[in-house]
Design a protein around this nucleic acid. Structure first.
Length: 683
RNA sequence: GCCUCCUUAGCUCAGCGGUAGAGCACUUCCAUGGUAAGGAAGGGGUCCCCGGUUCAAGUCCGGGAGGAGGCUCCA
């Protein structure tokens, strides 16, 4: 038989040869490192398979080692099985859910209720790790076996594992495989590595509760997360990388750099912006406001609350009542309370009952309902459109307590929101313009590593969306076309749409690799309908406008949180809360330093003066740690000559130039100001 | 909301039944030093909150609040 390698070369092997045979044919070293193979048969998707399965004639085959993604996945998946084997040895009777490989490791969901062990804690993990290493040294092969559905069911009924049985019942007969290593048998599609032996370094990282099949109404299993490596050194490096990521965590940097805080008394998920953090917000907002003026947006300002009726019309209330702060009720117009019900309970959540027409106010969860009222204040001609209303609007959402985190998930946040009201003909151009604005924003902050996601309806769950299916189809198609015409590569995600329409989301990753939605452009045919918005077209007919919701940052909170991590706190000059710090060498230069600071401030720069009686070395060190981009050293020479020496942050590392030289103070001010303007795209 | 973990000085953390500790920060004094930490002295704590066990509780037990990582949900 003939096998093609990824480089295009061919190998002749005897019929029935396996991946291992192929690896051996190439080199003994590769055979030792080989974990699995990736097989591509004519015209099919590549498939990762066990090393010891016979190869199909004529296929293209890549040998996978731990260096490849597929190799890692097989390695970690096998590690999950190894952990399961260890758990079964330590806790007989343990029942298993699913145990997949994930990005950066693996987990297994287990139910310990039948073992007498009521719960697992961190202290139990080292024993499990030790057992895994012991079993791994036993060098048991992962053996694949095809079984009939009946046999599979019989096995797990005998074993008493209801979760596996449920999984098997959903599978088709004839496609079921078991894998066994040592005494442990698991239902598994594979692939696996040949044996447990390469699993040398093991770290179980955390415990979490996870509902069976992600369903809150089903039992909660214990999820054990772990990661393994073929060498201890790789594990050490992995842990070191995690530690470095933690150094970039915006919660840590935000505290160190004095950007924002939380207070128990103010409340969870309600960030408080400190002076330096407020500068970030305002600078970003100014940057966007300037862009928006150039793009035909008009600013508006609306209140933080509105009558419940506004949100009844918009559909936010009562359907999303449990993710909103409880309404402020004035009185109740509905039927009397049922016998025995505490009237107090009615002053909080009263979701879901449209007959009970409470009167009151709601903290706004979105700005759009308010904006519809601005549009609706007078009749519009098609000649007026598009109308683009922009507001940095602060909204409040009652996120579940377990969901809150730093600045990326909060309960009160400010959207750089705008709503474009346009004719159906204008939708595509307006949508494209919003994409362009979002990309401009991301470019200004040097974001390159983002993905654009088309968020679509969940076809299996259409009742949670408002509006007509035909409109949804049209809207989803319009988004695809606009993105394609903007040259944007997109991925499509079902079930991620807003309840009122599909959207295009810009996703970026944080320091820990979690993906967050920042910018978003959303298409909405529904609110115009609900609020009966119209314009008069060329034929003097009343026609529905289309609404586009868009927020290039998404929210200032999340955007800044992610940007802190993206930059590691090293903000570009235009964004840095303190752009320059003057460092007099001795107290004798303090006065001159103040005059330099004054000159720079008059150019609009944010400047501090470090007048402490410390050595320059100390002042420079601390300016570096505070991530001040321009450090301006002033000694007797500068004071004499009317100049200032500039040291840029990061200088001195790797033998770089330490200072960029002495400038006349006026020139320095002009240079820095020009750099700021360039950064904001206003050169 | 559920699971696991955490909460001690402004910050980072040690202490884990017997009168609260370190480094940094802060204050004062000395030193006036040219590109990443000069020296000395000093001040600073309801050990998250509420109960319980104990002669004695940051320390053990229960409950609560807040935070972290997951799960679920998501406008």
């Amino acid at each position: 038989m003939q096998i093609t390698l990824p480089d295009g070369s061919h190998r002749q092997l005897p019929d029935g040869a396996t991946g291992r045979d192929l690896a051996l044919d190439i080199s003994a070293g590769l055979a030792r490192a080989a974990l699995a193979v990736e097989v591509t048969e004519d015209g099919r998707q590549p498939e990762v398979r066990d090393l010891d399965r016979p190869l199909p004639d004529g296929a293209t085959v890549a040998i996978l080692t731990f260096d490849s993604e597929g190799g890692k996945q097989a390695f970690w998946h096998s590690s999950a099985h190894l952990m399961a084997e260890a758990l079964e040895a330590l806790y007989p009777g343990v029942q298993f859910g699913i145990g997949p490989a994930i990005e950066g490791g693996f987990y297994y969901d287990v139910d310990l209720s039948a073992t007498g062990k009521d719960r697992l804690t961190d202290e139990d993990l080292p024993a499990i790790e030790a057992k895994m290493k012991e079993l791994a040294r036993g060098d048991s092969a992962f053996e694949r076996r095809e079984v009939s559905k009946a046999d599979a069911i019989a096995y797990f009924e005998e074993k008493g594992d209801p979760y596996k049985l449920e999984l098997i019942r959903d599978l088709e007969d004839g496609t079921i495989t078991f894998y066994q290593q040592g005494g442990f048998v698991d239902l598994c599609r594979g692939p696996h590595i040949p044996s447990t032996k390469p699993i040398k370094a093991v770290k179980l990282t955390s415990l979490a509760g996870a509902y069976w099949r992600g369903d809150e109404s089903r039992p909660q299993l214990t999820r054990i997360y772990g990661v393994t490596f073929p060498k201890q050194k790789l594990l050490d490096e992995h842990l070191e990388r995690l530690e470095l990521a933690r150094q970039r965590d915006h919660r840590k940097l935000g505290k160190e750099m004095d950007l924002f805080m939380f207070s128990d008394k103010v409340g969870p998920g309600l960030p408080i912006w400190l002076p330096k953090g407020a500068v970030l917000r305002e600078t970003l907002a100014d940057f966007l406001k300037t862009e928006q003026v150039a793009r035909g947006y008009e600013p508006v300002v609306t209140p933080h609350i509105a009558r419940l009726d506004l949100f009844r019309t918009s559909g936010h209330y009562p359907y999303y009542a449990d993710s909103q702060f409880p309404p402020m009720l004035e009185d109740e117009l509905g039927p009397p309370l049922p016998e025995g019900e505490d009237p107090e309970s009615r002053t909080h959540h009263t979701p879901g009952d449209p007959e009970r027409r409470e009167r009151g106010y709601l903290l706004k969860p979105m700005n759009c309902p308010h904006h519809t009222q601005i549009y609706a204040r007078r009749p519009h001609s098609y000649r007026d459109l598009p109308v683009r209303l922009a507001e940095f609007g602060t909204v409040y959402r009652y996120e579940q307590s377990g969901e809150l985190g730093g600045l990326t998930r909060v309960r009160g946040f400010t959207q750089d929101d705008a709503h474009v009201f346009c004719t159906p003909d204008q939708v595509k151009d307006e949508f494209k313009a919003a994409i362009d604005l979002t990309m401009t924003v991301l470019r200004a902050l040097n974001y390159e590593d983002y993905t654009a996601q088309v968020s679509l309806r969940d076809p299996a769950n259409t009742e949670k969306y408002i509006g007509e299916p035909a409109q949804w189809d049209a809207a989803e198609q319009a988004i695809r076309e606009a993105a394609a015409e903007m040259g944007l590569e997109t991925v499509e995600e079902e079930g991620e749409a807003a309840f009122y329409g599909p959207k295009l989301d810009f996703m970026v990753k944080d320091a820990l690799g979690r993906s967050w939605q920042l910018g978003t452009v959303q298409l909405d045919y529904n609110l115009p309908e609900r609020f009966d918005l119209t314009y008069i077209d060329e034929n003097d007919d009343r026609v529905r406008p289309v609404m586009i919701h868009r927020a290039p940052f998404g929210s200032l909170e999340r955007f800044i949180g992610v940007t802190i991590e993206h930059t590691g706190g090293d903000f570009p000059l235009w964004l840095a809360p303190v752009q320059a710090r003057i460092l007099p060498i001795t107290d004798a230069q303090n006065e001159y330093a103040q005059s330099v600071a004054q000159t720079l401030r008059q150019s609009g720069l944010r400047v501090e003066v470090d007048t402490r009686s410390e050595k320059v070395g100390r002042k420079i060190r601390e300016a570096e740690l505070d991530k001040v981009p321009a450090q301006i050293v002033i000694g007797a020479k500068e004071a004499e000559a009317g100049t200032a020496s500039v040291r840029r942050r990061g200088a001195g590392e790797d033998g770089q130039t330490i200072d960029t030289g002495a400038f006349l103070v006026e020139d320095l001010a002009r240079n820095l100001k020009a750099e700021v303007d360039r950064g904001m795209g206003r050169a």
